[in-house]
């Protein structure tokens, strides 16, 4: 019985981090609407082939009793994909990017690449990492999400 009680006592800390994180992938499918516009639907990632758009949703939840602060989410652009310009979103966050494998981050407008001695603005497909810095603490019991899109090479 002692053993059982000990195990139960450990369960919360083993199963629930104070702030949990999940990531999901979706196939982005354009769906024509009745009014003639085309809306993008995020569907299960089935039959994803080169050229398709894939959306990633990263969800954080504060399961603890205290507010979580200084939250930073870092997501390398997956291999065999290219980041789609201006697709990263996240309410209440500052979004920056890296073109050097995550060594440094900057806003999209400030990112540069040097080629053959010449410096130019970085292209979205050259981004290697995306980073979200949440500007406010996440209160206990609260959750949020950030998203970005890539195209499969």
């Amino acid at each position: 019985m002692r053993t059982l009680l000990f195990t139960l006592a450990l369960l919360p800390s083993l199963v629930f981090a104070e702030v949990s994180l999940t990531t999901e992938a979706f196939k982005i499918v354009p769906v024509p609407q009745a009014d003639g516009t085309v809306m993008e639907e995020w569907q299960a990632p089935e039959k994803v082939v080169p050229g398709d758009k894939v959306g990633y949703r990263i969800t954080y939840s504060n399961n603890g009793k205290d507010a979580a602060e200084s939250i930073v989410i870092n997501n390398p652009v997956p291999d065999a994909t290219s980041y789609i310009a201006n697709s990263a979103t996240g309410a209440g966050s500052v979004i920056t990017y890296s073109v050097n494998g995550g060594q440094s981050f900057a806003k999209a407008s400030e990112l540069t690449v040097t080629e053959q001695g010449k410096t130019r603005a970085a292209k979205a497909e050259e981004y290697s990492h995306i980073r979200w810095q949440l500007t406010n603490p996440v209160e206990a019991g609260a959750s949020g999400k950030v998203e970005f899109k890539v195209r499969v090479n």
Binding site: L21, G64, D66, I73
Partner: peptide, 17 residues
């Protein structure tokens, strides 16, 4: 194609794993 997201945060001024 694998995606890995990493999050760092602090609680009450202490950095968590």
């Amino acid at each position: 194609i694998e995606n890995t997201a990493t999050m760092s945060y602090a609680v009450n001024g202490s950095t968590s794993n």
